[in-house]
Design a binder for these strands. Structure first.
Length: 780
DNA sequence: TTGCCACAAATTTTT
DNA sequence: TTTGTGGCAA
């Protein structure tokens, strides 16, 4: 086999020119653009992937750019896979396979595998995922004798991660605050641990390549930069500083840098994505061609109008006017529910309706803001026998048994990997406890060796009891046996050997519980995935190695594995980005949940990002969109009383239909019967359930229909929604009331009097006694 | 060394 | 509600 990284011959036969009849004008302009920087604003559903794919096809087929000189980067494996597939269809597999299409990490790994020396790594370096990183950081904190209460490993890692995303080293942390010097120390020791283990973390993968390509002296750097004639970046609104500098450096020679994104869909600022980079791009490339794709091909007119209504008020966005030629379709349904159970029941009943009318469950999705909302939905789905799958949440590769087996494999592959050794040294239990491990770490530190190398000396050192000594030696023998076997076994066989010889399989088999059963199944699934890897590499005539498999697995996430099975997909709104469905249920549209408000008041919530998130959610739907909100919701062990989300008020009235679930309708009907006027000092009349007070004025301006005349401060009643106790000003037990600072709560008791003292339970507080004049009745 | 119980905390997540 | 963690006894 020749060097897999070598350039293929320059004379690869290009495909037939297949350039665009079926693109609209701006799409064609973007796809047909050849030289120089290009910035494409691609609205939701505007055919973004299509444009990238056509652009690449055009470069190859018409402009004869050799495929291996084109680099296209994405954020997820899934997006990369999709792009590869479409390119294969358009250009033929033979040509497409030479294109460099992949995630930032995959592309950089490919380069690092070739240029590892320039990055100061050894050939078989490994990648540490976040669990591994935490293990390392725990060790660091301990080694520096720090209080892990004052310096929680996760937070320290967070700071380091943030620094690395801006390509900053330890010295940059030093002056940040009074704990800066400590952070710097942690950072340095952390990096040393990684280096000693011949490991990189996710950030390092990109940083290492960045250092190489930004170094004008570096030969490999010049090689990489000279290699690509065209660089394309998908989801440009999500890039961080490192990624931007990376693509800038790689494309510096030709300036053929094409970036595609939608600032309205920037929902990952909290993890380092920097929307300012879009503006930076215009500054860095003042001659850039700018194309805006504003025609939406995905959704009905009502959905597009709704989406535009939500995103229009966003500040600081690139002006774009999303529009569509599609028919109006059904109005967007906004459904008021009593509580989360009522909400789930409603959603499931509408799903069943749709399925009975012939819609495939795979065309239906349920979105929520946070995972904690999924449980109730799941329960009802199960009870009603609706097939579903949850995307995200506890991931396959995060499961303990999977990580255990992978750790075994990684130690076998790379004995220096201390983190992996520590993970499995006592799994299954070998009577090697914390004390023994402590000794082992000391021995390793003293000798400057890896833990694996320290196993022998530690056992011989005499500081251990005989039981512990034997246990350590047996563990060393186990690893050595496995390593010997590894040289002539296939990866899947090595995995089998690990499970057998380590006693891991036996441990699970002995356990009668259903969890143990699931774990065994998961392990079998992992072995299955190794087999699949072997087959794939065999088909590509590449060697299949343990290192090869491990690398792929670390760079892979199972968010990429939305199954094609006919099941309703359930996921967070974040997980929904990039997907589309015929029918979408967007649940939990309540204040404090969506937009989400952290209980931690220190964290200033980013209202704008929440708005963009809502925009992403509604633009996923092609034909039908249901939005639900509940008056109360039991979450995090506490009942919260919520107002409808302010975003709902931004949907144009004409594209919306209001609904109330049967359960809530029955309830409010009953309330209307029973309530009459009384004490209290309410001036407000009930508000439409979905109206948020702050959003109200704005929405009536925008909504088209003129707002009814009313006195300042007075709320008006939405005519098509019957609700609440119809105009009485009294407060009763069980009423929902709103307080300026405490939010919405429920009334526990009311004292008599003109301005009665009311006891109210607000979520997150113990019940409070408050004068009625400070309260206002809240809508459902 | 292990196992149990009490207690706190609680978005969003790719690679 | 769930999940993880820390302390303490066997």
């Amino acid at each position: 086999m020749s060097d897999p990284y070598a350039f293929p011959p320059d004379d690869a036969e290009p495909a037939q020119p297949s350039f665009p009849d079926e693109l609209n004008e701006p799409q064609a302009a973007a796809a047909g653009h050849v030289d120089g920087p290009l910035l494409i604003f691609a609205g939701a559903g505007s055919g973004k992937t299509r444009v990238i794919v056509y652009r690449i096809a055009n470069l190859v087929a018409v402009h004869r750019v050799p495929p291996y000189r084109i680099l296209a980067v994405t954020f997820t494996n899934k997006a990369a896979g999709e792009m590869k597939k479409r390119l294969g269809d358009l250009l033929g597999e033979e040509v497409a396979k030479d294109l460099w299409v992949g995630t930032f990490h995959a592309v950089c790994m490919r380069l690092l595998r070739k240029y590892y020396e320039a990055a100061g790594l050894e050939r078989n370096f490994v990648i540490y995922d976040d669990g591994d990183q935490r293990t390392v950081m725990n060790r660091v904190i301990k080694a520096l004798d720090l209080d892990d209460k004052r310096f929680p490993p996760r937070q320290v890692l967070g700071r380091i991660h943030a620094a690395k995303q801006e390509a900053k080293g330890p010295e940059h942390l030093e002056h940040e605050s009074f704990i800066g010097p400590v952070l710097k120390q942690c950072f340095e020791l952390y990096q040393k641990h990684l280096k000693d283990a011949n490991a990189v973390d996710f950030d390092d993968i990109l940083l290492a390549v960045l250092r190489i390509v930004e170094d004008p002296e570096s030969l490999p750097g010049r090689e990489i930069c000279g290699r690509f004639r065209h660089v394309l970046v998908d989801e440009f609104q999500d890039v961080n500083q490192v990624q931007y500098r990376l693509v800038k450096a790689i494309s510096a020679a030709t300036r053929n840098l094409c970036v595609v994104g939608d600032d309205d869909q920037s929902i990952y600022r909290w993890r380092g994505a920097d929307v300012r980079i879009v503006r930076g791009f215009r500054r860095d490339f003042p001659d850039a061609t700018i194309v805006k794709l504003e025609q939406n091909y995905r959704s009905t007119n009502n959905i597009v109008k709704g989406a535009l209504g939500i995103i229009k008020p966003a500040q600081d966005r690139e002006p774009k006017e999303l529009w569509t030629d599609n028919h109006d379709g059904d109005p967007v349904a906004i459904v008021a529910c009593d509580n989360e159970h009522d909400e789930a029941a409603f959603v499931v009943s509408r799903i069943k309706d749709a399925v009975s009318r012939g819609l495939s469950p795979r065309e239906i999705a349920v979105f929520y803001r946070i995972h904690a909302q999924s449980r109730v939905l799941e329960e009802v789905m199960r009870a009603e026998r609706v097939p579903y799958q949850i995307i995200g949440g506890m991931r396959f590769f995060e499961r303990a048994e999977i990580k255990d087996l992978l750790s075994y494999l990684r130690v076998v592959d790379n004995p220096k990997s201390d983190v992996d050794l520590l993970r499995v040294i006592n799994v299954p239990s070998r009577k090697i406890g914390d004390t023994t491990i402590e000794r082992l770490v000391q021995t390793a530190d003293a000798g400057g060796t890896s833990l694996f190398e320290a196993l022998g000396p530690c056992a011989e050192g005499g500081s251990l009891g005989s039981a512990a000594r034997n246990a350590v030696l047996r563990f060393r023998d186990l690893l050595q046996t496995l390593m010997r076997g590894a040289t002539d076994l296939r990866p899947a066989e090595i995995a089998e050997a690990v499970l057998e010889k380590s006693g891991y399989a036996k441990m699970l088999e002995a356990d009668e519980s259903t969890e143990a059963e699931t774990r065994l199944q998961n392990l079998r699934e992992l072995v299955g995935s190794i087999l699949a890897y072997e087959e794939e590499t065999a088909a590509a005539a590449e060697p299949s190695t343990l290192s090869g498999y491990l690398e792929r697995v670390t760079l892979q996430s199972d968010a990429d594995t939305l199954e094609d099975a006919p099941r309703v997909a359930m996921m967070t709104v974040h997980g929904a980005k990039g997907l589309e469905f015929d029918t979408v249920f967007l649940t939990g549209m309540e204040e404090d949940l969506f937009p989400f408000r952290s209980q931690d008041p220190k964290r200033g919530e980013d209202q704008e990002e929440e708005r963009r998130l809502a925009y992403v959610a509604v633009t996923r739907a092609r034909r039908r969109l249901w939005i639900t909100h509940a008056g109360r919701r039991y979450i995090f062990g506490d009942t919260r009383y919520g107002l409808a989300s302010r975003f709902l008020a931004d949907l144009p009235r004409a594209s919306v239909r209001q609904e109330v679930t049967p359960a809530l309708a029955a309830l409010s009907g009953a309330r209307r019967e029973s309530s009459s006027s009384g004490g209290g000092s309410f001036s407000s009349r009930p508000r439409a359930p979905w109206q948020h007070p702050q959003a109200q004025a704005a929405s009536s301006m925008r909504g088209g229909a003129p707002a009814p005349a009313r006195a300042p401060g007075e709320r008006y009643v939405e005519r098509d929604v019957e609700h609440d106790s119809g105009g009485s000003g009294s407060i009763h037990e069980g009423d929902r009331v709103e307080h300026k600072t405490l939010g919405v709560g429920v009334v526990l008791s009311v004292a008599a009097g003109a301005d009665p003292t009311v006891t109210v339970k607000f979520s997150g507080y113990t019940p409070k006694a408050i004068k009625a004049s400070f309260l206002r009745r809240a809508g459902r």
